[in-house]
Write a protein that binds this DNA or RNA. Sequence first.
DNA 1: TCCTATGGGCACAAAAATGTGCGTACTTAA
DNA 2: TTAAGTACGCACATTTTTGTGCCCATAGGA
Lengths: 118, 118
Amino acid sequence: MKGNANIIRPYYSEKCPVIKALEILGGKWRLAIIWELSHYKSLRYNELKRHIDGITNIMLTRSLQVLEQHHLINRTDYGQIPPHVEYSITADCQALLPALEIINEWGKTRIEVHRAQS
Amino acid sequence: MKGNANIIRPYYSEKCPVIKALEILGGKWRLAIIWELSHYKSLRYNELKRHIDGITNIMLTRSLQVLEQHHLINRTDYGQIPPHVEYSITADCQALLPALEIINEWGKTRIEVHRAQS
DNA sequence: TCCTATGGGCACAAAAATGTGCGTACTTAA
DNA sequence: TTAAGTACGCACATTTTTGTGCCCATAGGA
C-alpha cells in the first residue's frame, strides 16, 4: 500500500481526448468493424463476419455491443425467426471516417514495409 | 489440435491496413505519446513523462522503444552524463497527425458525453 | 553530506483482452 | 431426414498488456 493510494485521481482519459478515444476504439477488431460497415448502408451479422477474416463469434458480438453502447453503430432487429438483424454506423461515427481513411492509407505503407523486410 | 492447425494462413493484418496500423499504434499510451511529441520540436524523457499523466517509467520506455522500432519517433542521445536524450516524431509519423487531430476532436465530444451522464 | 535529477532496466505480479468449444431455437432447402 | 443458415451467449482457458517495486551510475546544488 503506498502513501496516497486512497486518493482517487481523475483518470487521464478524462483529460486527454486521444486516450479517451482509444478507450472506446482501441480493441483489436473495433476499427475494422467500423471500417467495414462504413462501406455499406448496412450489413447483417454473418455478412460482417465474412468480411472480417479471423474474427470469432464472441469477439464480433462483444465488439458490436460496446460500439452500440457508445452509439457508434445502430442495431436493427427485425424481430423475425430465423433472426434478422442489421448493423450500420451512426452519424457520430461518420465523423471518424476521415481519420480512418488516413489510418488506412498509412497502414498500407506499413504493410509494404513489412513485405520488403521479409 | 484442430484439423488444419498446421496450415499457416496469412494474418488478417497483412490484408487490412486498419488492423495493421492498430497493431503498431494500438497500445494504451502510444498515440498519446505521439500526440504530445507532435506539439514540440523535441522533448526529453522526463519532460515527456510529466506531460502524460499517469504513465509509468516502464510503459514510457517500452512505448518509446516500439515506436522507435517502427520509425515513428527519433531518439537522439547526446552521450552525456548525466544522460541527455531527446525524442521527436519522424516524417512518417507526421502523416498521421491529421488523423490524430480528428480523433482528438472526437474524443473531446466523448468526454463531454461522459460528463453529462454522471 | 544528502537530495534531487538525469534515463532508463529487470523480475515478477496483476489485470485486461482475446480465444475455444459448445449450445440455443427455429426455418428452409436438399 | 438431415444439413445448413439465422444471431448470438456462456464458462472457461489462454494470451497479451500493463503495472509494481526496486535498482543502476553520475553530477550539481543546498
